[in-house]
Design a binder for these strands. Structure first.
Lengths: 213, 213, 213, 213
DNA sequence: GATGAATGAGGTTTCATTCAT
DNA sequence: CATGAATGAAACCTCATTCAT
């Protein structure tokens, strides 16, 4: 390794660190105030860099948003779900642990709201697509990991076989969201026990034990 | 009815009609492109009026948004749910009919996304509050009607009694949303049968029949 | 007097009364908040009439302003100064009484500020000119009355003769203004006794008595 | 001095120069047409810059106004008055020189009018306060310097001791204004000799010599 | 004649993005 | 390479004035 490459790697590392700082600031400010209420100037000031510098790391505000909010968080979530699926014993326990993790992770807690604030404008779509490779890859890992858990549950006789795995997966994601995102519609019925909510789901997909009630 | 009141009602009616046009245009454009990507100029041009005219009907862009997107749609939803609850026979049928209606109504289909695009800015909150009376009233009707249906189901022995009504309600809303709002997370498992999704829910809350599998 | 003319005079009186209400509202609101911070809608609402009605009484906002603020108040001031000049005995007493009146009258107290807020725009000049006949007439009465008082004082030996009457008049007006209009420049020296201020002026124009100090 | 600081000072200087151009244009246009009749677009066009650039120098139109009209001019006035008070011999000469300067300086000649056009709106007050430190400081210097001159005049036996200094100061400022600001009220008596006007003031505050007339 | 509603014209302000340094 | 400053473009909003009723 010659002097040049040392310099380059030094620079490169500094650059990485700076990018990390930008992402963290963006993550916090976007989720705090919303995408449209935070300007790049504010983010740059928070990091302590010049506004133009952001553009040497991200191609646009939307790109930064997608990178900061989705790319990283989704990667974190996908990896953790994989770990949980490996550690836990049976399918119910795996889903339970996943549920517990997801409702406490701020990917669902705060980012879902921002996703919609991006809107359906062509620009937003373009920004999403440019980062798509990473995002869709992790989304794939996330959903496939859970789908596999469900499939295993079916094979093990834990879950019903007359309901499609995709349906069970979708229902699972939906209750995670229900628990994470506040919903004015629910009104006075807003506060629910996460455990109970999960129980509704598990009961809904579980093989019905012989019971009398 | 004297001349004055005729005049007044004529004017009043024209004004109402124009307001209706504004609301329709706003509804369409906001849901098409998103709140922040549509300017009042575009809405006015679509209606064929001056931009300033919008301000004689709505106090701000946010007020228009809330009125156009939430006030009307939520009222429509609340009323229809009430009707369905009155017509159908038992609780399962009532929830089934409600589910069918809700996943086909564009309140869930498109408006939920716009809600989040409003963000948490103080202005958005103020706009929501100024129309709050109508919105919260209809949200109350919506959630209470469904809660009553669930309660009746419990009494009739259709639903389990060891799960709180609020939990069941929240789970119900969540599957409606799951069916209505596209979710990139679900990835390849996106397409599900609404009936199956509902079945998961119903199974999850239903009293378990004595079965052997 | 036939029916028609009775009707006409009735209408005419109502019209006059309404105009009076407009002027009073404008007077109050303009002096309270300033010319540019009060809209015609606000004035109309205060009076309880339609906005367009104002235009059947005044040709423009500026015309209303000039009429409401200057025409009426200046007439009042001019008349009162004439009365005081007729009642009081000698020149010093006449100026003293005039001073007392002027510093308590809100023409100087509040309107002087509004005059400048009209600016030097061509429109403002035009508005002033259209009412000019009344305004300049009363300004003439005002200044000439005071000038005559000063002249009489000179003849009576009360005032110095080596100072031009116009100079004395201007100085008089200036101390009235000094007493009426708050001046940030004077800073901590703002609060002064009106009597003392007048005394400076009177001493400045009076024939110097033989004194030893 | 390294490269960085050279760069910074270069940029800094260019920025200063541009700000100076903005201030000059604002100063001229505001005094020409009035605060409300000049838009920032006009000022920017006059300078040859984009309208938004003004906002990188001043936080609002009102801030620019206060800075352009009051901050600079008042500083100039305060400093000059201090110099005159130091140079001239006795109190009468000091006041005379100050008077001569003030009636020729356009602070009184044109800016006093603009002050009132700002009105009493909360925004105007806020703008004034944000620059207050400089403005009130210079106003303090201005008034205290003149007050000291008067006090010295009293001690030296030039001025009467039975009139408060604050009264004398206020009267002084008032005749400066009288000479500087055109007043429609004075009508045909408008043109006066500055020297005579000053003489009225000086006579009014001077110790009366033993005279017979 | 009075009016409420409509609006053209224009204002201030913001901000993502670019560019000279 | 990083940057602070500049800015084009556009947004929201206001209001004096007009006009159909």
């Amino acid at each position: 390794m010659n002097v040049d490459s040392v310099h380059r790697s030094l620079r490169e590392r500094q650059r990485q660190e700076r990018q990390e700082l930008i992402l963290q600031a963006a993550e916090q400010l976007f989720t705090e105030k919303g995408y449209y209420d935070i300007s790049l100037d504010e983010i740059a000031k928070r990091v302590g860099i010049g506004t133009a510098t952001i553009y040497s790391h991200f191609s646009s505000k939307e790109d930064l948003m997608v990178a900061a909010i989705f790319e990283r968080a989704l990667q974190r979530v996908a990896l953790h779900i994989q770990e949980l699926a490996a550690i836990q014993q049976n399918a119910v326990e795996k889903l339970t642990a996943s549920f517990q993790f997801l409702i406490s992770d701020d990917f669902f807690l705060r980012r879902a709201q921002l996703y919609y604030s991006l809107g359906n404008s062509p620009e937003a779509q373009k920004a999403l697509n440019s980062r798509q490779s990473s995002i869709s890859e992790n989304a794939r890992i996330f959903s496939e990991t859970l789908a596999e858990v469900i499939e295993q549950g079916k094979i093990a006789g834990e879950f019903r076989q007359d309901i499609a795995t995709s349906t069970m997966l979708k229902a699972f994601i939906s209750i995670v969201r229900a628990q994470s995102v506040k919903d004015r519609l629910a009104g006075n019925y807003e506060d629910v026990s996460p455990a109970e909510l999960l129980q509704v789901y598990i009961s809904g997909i579980a093989v019905q034990a012989t019971t009398t009630q």
